[in-house]
Design a protein around this nucleic acid. Structure first.
Lengths: 348, 348
DNA sequence: GCTAGCACTCCACGGCCAAGAGTGCCAGTA
DNA sequence: TACTGGCACTCTTGGCCGTGGAGTGCTAGC
């Protein structure tokens, strides 16, 4: 994927990348003169103009109007990102901020993610995003029915620290004895994953007496909502105020659409799943490459984090397509790496 | 408080209120002609002009520039709000939306609040806010230590459905036996409130053997963070995208400050405490009446909700000072009423 | 105490012009 | 063949001006 872009030829590539960098820096359409001076290619602005015209023809640059400089298209950014050098070192201050944050061991992954999202949003000046691990594969360590008078609380605790609860109306038949009895039966599910336990519960319920039946189904339902559907859709968002920064020349209308979607977890989850797919490393989705980011005129930088070999979650940032990709990618990659360490440790 | 404003005299009051209503509706500075026609006072625009000049002198109205219409000052809005008729009926669609939402019984208060905030933001087109009940006075029904291998989870469940957890590094001395033993001792705390249990725990820890000491302190700390300090600061926010609505003529800079503060729960909690104080009913804080809302050029409408006689939480909306106060107050009041019912029921 | 009338003020808007930035292209050169 | 200097052309930006309109403040009269 990287290589196919080199059909551009080295000089066109250099010009394109110079335009991207300059535009990201200044926010102004950039002219041939600027590139001729700054790029160090040792050619005149006229030559740059020719290259630029060609790059526009090829779809990497545009023109706001005839006599303005060039700005990159989404395809232009894509080329830039794909040809970025790999060994970029994070700025020292950022490196230290990340190290500092992870130095104070916090043991609750949900909390760590909230903090990580804040951290990323501070480092990049964009908004941070994270998808925490799902419950499906997590073994259950506790499963309880708690008598709360007119209601009953169903409480599940997972091996890696998640806690799911649900309060239900107390079924007619469920007196203290029954609660006790059902809770006892639930103990046989310890050690099973949320997913396996669900299946098991449905079987148990089918065979159970009427008085137990309802409760067992409710427990199954509790585990189900923790693993899928509306309730499970969960995205951690932070630092959205960064997106209103005055530097960002975002149109009001666009900003509004972005904010609206950020509030709909279900939808955000879908977007993040789409853009992360099954990438192994940090990945960038630029503007119209995904319908939703296109709608926002924004880009998303994400990286998966893993427990051992299995991807368990996602972390990233969302910002304008005119983004400092190099730095954003480095920050996201570094944070994802730390999260993987934590998640792997948790797992062990 | 209402009455003192009537020193304005009935006609000045009528003019002021007409200006507020017209300005809220149109967003444009309003002229004397408009008021003369719409207010039904049966006087000419010249008379209105005199009244307006007087109202400006008194600090209720301003002028963007000499030849523009008038807009209300914060004091102007205050007078308007204070003289609002009490018996305003909620719009039928809103009434139904609220009834509909609360018809489907959700039993987890935290969930209800999230939903209520969304509901309010949809009804009013502003952002919704809520402060859930604190843990301090809630009796504890379960207190557990869960063995998670290299770590231990401390889990507390409250009478009204709250669940607090904290994962700690496993203390050296804490083998399975010790965990068991400490967990047994914790059972004596059942029925105590979070606050009482804390005090009790500190006493227990002081007298306990070395191996129990650390664990007991950790449990106390868990209860403490649930009741006060950083961790307990918790504000539910929803519908912020409404604030970016194009209709709102909010300055970029102002909007940014508002969004930044909305993300800082600690600070938001303080603001909400300030503006709610110990009001019994819905209350409005307008612009500069509070330094923070002044900074935002915004107003907050809040109402407490209660369990029995005790205020347990707050719900409200935040929007521009140019707000439809009547409708916002009605919506907030109605939702708070429903929440009080739920909270009271919970308590019982 | 109210109103009609009027002079006055100030903004919003459109047209106009000049300056400037940047392009596209051509003709010339190594 | 590839590059460059030069130049005409285009389009935006900003300032300047004049006009129209909205709304005020004031005064004289009912």
């Amino acid at each position: 994927m990287v290589e196919q872009h080199h059909e551009l030829g080295p000089r066109k590539g250099a010009v394109l990348n110079a335009v991207v960098e300059e535009y990201v820096r200044s926010g102004e359409p950039v002219g041939s003169e600027t590139i001729a001076e700054s790029s160090g290619l040792g050619v005149s602005s006229a030559t740059i103009r020719n290259e630029m015209a060609a790059l526009e023809e090829l779809g990497f640059l545009t023109h706001p109007h005839t006599s303005a400089g060039r700005i990159p298209t989404d395809t232009g950014y894509r080329h830039y990102v794909d040809t970025l050098p790999h060994g970029f070192r994070l700025r020292e201050t950022h490196r230290r901020a990340i190290a500092g944050y992870f130095a104070e061991a916090i043991l609750d992954l949900e909390e760590v993610l909230k903090g990580s999202v804040q951290l990323l949003s501070r480092l990049t000046q964009y908004a941070g995003l994270a998808v925490p691990p799902g419950a499906a594969e997590e073994p259950i360590v506790r499963l309880e029915l708690i008598d709360m008078g007119p209601t009953v609380m169903i409480l599940a605790v997972g091996q890696h620290g998640r806690v799911d609860k649900r309060v239900i109306d107390r079924p007619e038949a469920a007196d203290v004895e029954v609660l006790r009895a059902v809770e006892d039966r639930l103990q046989s599910l310890r050690g099973l994953t949320y997913l396996d336990a669900q299946a098991r519960l449905l079987k148990l319920a089918a065979e159970a007496s009427v008085s137990h039946h309802d409760l067992l189904l409710h427990v199954a339902e509790t585990l189900r909502t923790a693993t899928q559907g509306e309730g499970a859709a969960h995205v951690v968002v932070g630092g959205v105020s960064n997106l209103t920064s005055e530097a960002q020349v975002w149109r009001r209308q666009t900003l509004r659409r972005l904010f609206e979607t950020l509030e709909r977890e279900q939808e955000m989850l879908q977007v993040l799943q789409d853009v992360t797919a099954d990438r192994e490393d940090v990945w960038v989705t630029i503007g119209a490459e995904h319908p939703t980011t296109g709608d926002w005129e924004a880009s998303i930088v994400t990286a998966p984090f893993k427990a051992g070999d299995a991807t368990v979650g996602t972390i990233g940032v969302v910002g304008p397509t005119r983004m400092d990709y190099l730095s954003a990618m480095a920050s996201v990659r570094a944070v994802a790496k730390r999260l993987s360490e934590i998640a792997t440790e948790h797992e062990a």
